[in-house]
Design a binder for these strands. Sequence first.
DNA 1: CGTCCATTTGAGGTGGATCAACCCTAGTGG
DNA 2: CCACTAGGGTTGATCCACCTCAAATGGACG
Lengths: 233, 233
Amino acid sequence: MLTQTFNTRAIKTQINGSKIAPVHPVSDQFGEIAGYVGLIATEFSYRKDEEIYGEDEPAEYVYQVVSGAVRSYKLLSDGRRQIGSFHLPGDVFGLESGPAHRLAAEAIIDTTVRLVKRSSLEKAAGTDVLVARKLWTMTAGELRHAEDHMLLLGRKTAMERVATFLLEMDRRLAVASMMALPMCRRDIGDYLGLTLETVSRALSQLHAQGILGFSGARQIVLRNRQRLHNLDA
Amino acid sequence: MLTQTFNTRAIKTQINGSKIAPVHPVSDQFGEIAGYVGLIATEFSYRKDEEIYGEDEPAEYVYQVVSGAVRSYKLLSDGRRQIGSFHLPGDVFGLESGPAHRLAAEAIIDTTVRLVKRSSLEKAAGTDVLVARKLWTMTAGELRHAEDHMLLLGRKTAMERVATFLLEMDRRLAVASMMALPMCRRDIGDYLGLTLETVSRALSQLHAQGILGFSGARQIVLRNRQRLHNLDA
DNA sequence: CGTCCATTTGAGGTGGATCAACCCTAGTGG
DNA sequence: CCACTAGGGTTGATCCACCTCAAATGGACG
């Protein structure tokens, strides 16, 4: 945020395979837009903690996480931070209807993204109602998440927030019932409106109750999803 | 929410003046859609505290407040409530990209709305990219509000939240520098993630500091917007 | 094997919640 | 017109969930 770290990046430009897949695969959000319209997608990599774009910066590109993880956040003047969402492989982020990004975005770990120019999407949406519909649907999906998150931030207890978080991450990134969290405790706290210490204590308590297991602080196995659901409100 | 109150309502159906105003007036969100496409809008009235639709109910209609005020909210199983937004005259609400409403809606005071069938809008959006674009823009506007509100709920102090609320309401409903709040202290608390007592104490403190004046608990005059801005983070 | 940062754990403080009166004021009915 | 009432609002006293500050522990990486 403060000092932009410049570093070498793997850059690869490719023609998206629009002729190979003229119909939209449900599995790939980006394929449904970029692929469908035959846009050129570029790959780009960011190092851990590198800024992808800042708050209120012109929204020139729309991104999709290929590998890694991204946090989107807002800051108050004194540095308090609220992370609005985490973006994991496959997720599209940075899509704006207006001219500027409403949140900043940073790579949580080394991350590769695909990106397309927003203007290309706008142009495609002006011609093709299916593209226009898809842009709306994606924004509506973000709105749904934000609405759920407002309930969490406004009304849930610390334990309920952590339970909700674990179930969300389990759903989104568990492989063989194990999840490898890319983000640190502070990020989790800033996502849940808590301090990192409170997050750590809640996780310890869940561990002590046998609801989850650790293999290192960021490798978590849920041993009892039902009990976790009960702890969520 | 629990017991639906049925009562007599003023019902008026009208043909929207699409031939009179073929271009979209910026001043009227609904005119930009319904009017533009020449849809039939119906007027409907709800009494204070009456439910307009429930959470997860099929989203059959899209609404615009003509007069009155509406709260959109989510509930936890034990009754804790988070109000996501207040809808004031001119505001469109209940617009969904998916099949169901994500929040419930209730009239805060006696309220009249205009409504159009969601299916009509969908149909229009399938033909006209300008309509499709407008639907996206409206959802994106709601997302922007939700993102700002997440920051408030996750990271602002009680006084900062109340200051933000007052500035928002001042912007949206002040007439001659006086605002007449339609909602009670509990609604404000459930919007800001606070209790009604905390809201009341913050307002009293602002009153004692001369930052605002009361004419009855819900008639508020901001006497010093700058100081209020400073109290906001 | 040592360094550095993330994480955990402990001790104590506090902002806002909770519980409890009390006070307005708008509406009602005599 | 005025007395009464009920619901909303204010204020006070106390509590506690979470924050803050501090220190110890652990794990990844050179």
